[in-house]
Design a protein around this nucleic acid. Structure first.
Lengths: 285, 285
DNA sequence: TTGCTCCTCACGTCACGTGAGGTGGC
DNA sequence: TTGCTCCTCACGTCACGTGAGGTGGC
């Protein structure tokens, strides 16, 4: 029989951990002195402790280990648990490799630009939303500003400002173009409306659903339209370096509308639907 | 300006998290109503939130992110942090891949043996220890039992039982052999003694240091000597499947001595020094 | 008036590590 | 007697999630 300290040295496990396992009922000492509460461990308990450590190595939680050790599970159940665990590890390795790539991309970017870029790329998902919009090819992108204001003032008044969300554009053509821009402009809604409307200038706006984007890379641009290309460049490089590809047209969500005269106070979130490039994953055998 | 709920929807971040970041000082709302404590966020705060999320993606802690955002660090410091982070991720990927291999080995073992094996392999390190021992080639392994008892009774009496640790054997020859065994037998000590001794049967025991083992695979065997081969087999397979190799002779630490007659009550820890096989690591470029 | 949102605590998570304050054993 | 080990709380860790219980705004 060993004291907790001796047993701890043999097993290379801190005595605090042995006490913790005692509390959890994972590994009760062979004997506890009723007067002093001193714990005594037998060498024959070492296999059980080793089993605990080995299962912990596999990444099982102490709770799972406890169930494994007490209700002695069947080989099939055990196989199931290990298979599940294997899948989890594969996932987490893939996630870590992604992170690694992202860090490397950041480091490269740092080498090129000497500092933090202004735009941070964030991956998120965007739900489907009702969308009241018009589609048009604009001779110049700047012609859009007037349209935006028409939309932003007229539609809330007609439909009720409670149901109207952010002014949103879908860039159907080249996202970077400044001339002959094929653009869809409108507002997202909290609930669909069934009729289409006509703007004071005669343009018709129609209801449709904006599709959900499972995975979208986004960046926020603050300032004038002219800064748009920078955000797109950042997104493009990020997508390339992190193993994604674009799978649809970009959206621009105008969180703060540009003021009519200069528009340098706008805040716009650019959203680009993407998917993972199928990569040669070393884990998939 | 947005309420916390609106801002939370735009950024796809739970409002509880926004409150948490507020508490931490990571992202203070633009404005807090002094009467109701309602928080208001501006769209221009989205870039900062995105920066937080992007850095979190890289695996930085909120504490580190806070320092990055407030004391705006130099590009070199940032480079250092990212390089450190990169190394950490590489480490953790390597660790996860190890774990993956171990899980796979367990699954294979399960397929072969239909259940848990009796022995669990645990990797640990063993410190250097003073060692009072004799080395001998035994005609039969069982001849060792008498020697063990001679050592275990005589040495503590001579040196003081406080300074004497477990009876320990070093298997210099083939670990699996049962005949003509080149074996070193003795006890580890808590402190070195300077003189060598002579056992009652005339054999001399001498002091030396048992080298530390940085990495040792260990298993505990309960029962008779004859079960030894099973533990060795388990260790051998484990070492092969997990990408290690043996780099020295095995040790056997007798935690509970075999009783003189049968010895089925012994508890022995087998320790085998190992090193990682140099593998084709996909991470090292 | 009725929901809806917002507020502030407070507690739980997971596997321990680290004291504080006190006692037993040689 | 003096260290050394052991004991039991209790609190901290990290980034939140989840109530409870209460209030503000339309």
């Amino acid at each position: 029989m060993f004291t907790i300290g001796e047993f701890s040295k043999i097993a290379q496990v801190p005595s605090s951990v042995l006490r913790y396992y005692d509390d959890l009922g994972l590994l009760k000492p062979m004997h506890v002195d009723p007067w002093t509460n001193y714990r005594s461990y037998s060498a024959t308990q070492l296999p059980r402790l080793n089993r605990i450590l080995a299962l912990k190595e596999l990444g099982l939680s102490l709770d799972q280990i406890g169930r494994l050790l007490n209700d002695n599970v069947s080989a099939d159940e055990l196989r199931g648990m290990l298979a599940l665990r294997k899948a989890q590890i594969e996932q987490s390795v893939a996630a870590e490799l992604d992170r690694l790539r992202t860090v490397e991309a950041r480091l490269q970017q740092l080498d090129h630009e000497g500092a933090f870029s202004h735009d941070d790329v964030v991956v998120k998902s965007v739900p489907a939303q009702p969308y009241l919009s018009l589609r048009h090819t604009l001779p110049y992108l700047f012609d859009g500003v007037a349209l935006i204001h028409e939309i932003a003032t007229y539609l809330p008044a007609r439909i009720g400002s409670k149901r109207v969300g952010a002014v949103t554009a879908v860039m159907h053509g080249e996202a970077f173009a400044l001339e002959n821009v094929d653009i869809e402009l409108g507002v997202v809604l909290t609930a669909a409306v069934d009729d289409s409307l006509t703007l004071p200038n005669g343009t018709r706006v129609a209801m449709r659903m904006l599709a959900a984007m499972d995975t979208a890379v986004t960046a926020v641009r603050v300032g004038a339209f002219e800064n748009g290309y920078r955000s797109y460049a950042v997104l493009g490089r990020w997508v390339e370096q992190n193993g994604y590809r674009f799978v649809g047209p970009a959206r621009e969500v105008l969180l703060v509308l540009p003021s009519a005269d200069h528009g340098t106070d706008a805040v716009v979130e650019i959203q680009f639907p993407v998917a993972k490039r199928s990569s040669s994953n070393p884990l998939v055998s």
